[in-house]
Write a protein that binds this DNA or RNA. Sequence first.
DNA 1: TCTTGAACCTCTAGTGACTAGAGATCCTAC
DNA 2: GTAGGATCTCTAGTCACTAGAGGTTCAAGA
Lengths: 139, 139
Amino acid sequence: MLSIGDLSRRTGVKVPTIRYYEQSGLLEATARTDGNQRRYGEAEAEKLGFIRHARDLGFSLDAIRALIELQDHPDRSCAEANALARDQLAEVTERIRRLQALERELQRIAEGCDGDGTAGSCYVLRSLADHGACETEHS
Amino acid sequence: MLSIGDLSRRTGVKVPTIRYYEQSGLLEATARTDGNQRRYGEAEAEKLGFIRHARDLGFSLDAIRALIELQDHPDRSCAEANALARDQLAEVTERIRRLQALERELQRIAEGCDGDGTAGSCYVLRSLADHGACETEHS
DNA sequence: TCTTGAACCTCTAGTGACTAGAGATCCTAC
DNA sequence: GTAGGATCTCTAGTCACTAGAGGTTCAAGA
């Protein structure tokens, strides 16, 4: 049996985060020692690994809850899991698109200023004051 | 003079957000009517536009506070504004890089499953359980 | 068996940048 | 004068944790 610290080292999820996951119903309350300390088995370690991986991929805890629900009912259609993955993918793609617009804009702004002048004539500050000067359509 | 609603329509910043900015010291407390309602002039509208634009570009409120400080002291060196812009750019670039790794991974996962099977044999769920299967180094 | 001290426990509060809602007051157009 | 939309303050909620206080338990060494 693993203590919460063992589990943390194994999965790379911090101890308070594990407790938080239990509290928010993502992990079930687990076995305890006589002294009230949590003990985990292999199944729990795997489940936390799943959660960790899904979090790394940007899934919200709500989405992960839905995925776990599906995992627990292997007879159900996996269409939902598929949809969740595709939604997540679409969101990531969109975020990349918007960040790239920002990147271009920030590049333009940062390159217009060498940091030598005074704030009064600073191109960075002027650019921030004037959205109209933007070349790309950011948000 | 503009009411808070007018200002909101003009800048695209929501009314509660404007009040929140005032409360957190980003905007100074402004003139009020006898009935205690906020009234704004051109200068405030411009400042809020600046904040809005910087937020759109991903600057934190703390960074924006620093930028406003600089704006208010036009005689200071603009090196700091330049550094803030470059920091922000570096962060955006890094976020894009990480999101692109996620995108590739999610693409792989989503494409492995057509949503036709059952959860028990779902490629999405299996992929999420097994980080080892990942092809790119995400997070 | 006793004693350290690291690891564990619960609980509350804080983070950032808002957002939502309650309940009261104000402003403006008719 | 009145109706009702806009505004006011205040508190609490969001997400996914993180930090800290104050107390208890566990495991290894003497």
